[in-house]
Amino acid sequence: MKQRAIKYLIGMALLALLGYNSVYFQPLDERLAANQKEVFDAAAYVESIWDTELAESYGNAPDFSQLLTALATDPEGTFEKSGNALGIGNIGYFRVKGEGTVTSVDENHVLLQVGDKSVEIETEFIYGNALRDASGLVKINDYPNTSDFNTISEEINARIRHDLIPTFRSSLAVGDRVEFEGAMELNKAHLNLQRPEIIPFTLKINP
């Protein structure tokens, strides 16, 4: 009888041990968080490259007037050498920097005279991929999710719209000298260099 009781006790202990190691409890929110895929933080990524790779890329941009001369004389070669494009098609993006004199300011643009060229600095519609793609720093195939890739542009553009443009426009006057770095989108099948438009990355007023 005593032996049987010991056997039962050992059996129950074994079952309890087996049960304890078979089941575990975890808070549901922890479990869900563990199952979630890593979320791409575009703002953090842009912050990490803003003052380093991006600033360096635009700081080393080709001179605007020289680039325009090259595009006029050898468009195909200049697209190949200085343009950046994500895939295939007619659109190419170019980094540029230069200096010009403010000739007019309207709701959406600032017009600069750069040498013999009139140049539009975009100050309203800062959207799209020009700044991201002209830099050549970000590759689509590094991002399995195309939506993540597009949020990089949105973050870059948002910083320009919120941090650069309001200060620039508030202290601007016709006749000011402005140094700029930025990106230009051009179509090689329908190349129009009459009034280039620049999406700015930096703008500096030299009154």
Partner: peptide
């Protein structure tokens, strides 16, 4: 092969 090859899209409007 690159996994994704984007092809650019161009806006067509009454000016162009």
């Amino acid at each position: 092969f690159a996994q994704k090859v984007p092809v650019t899209v161009e806006m067509v409007n009454q000016e162009n």
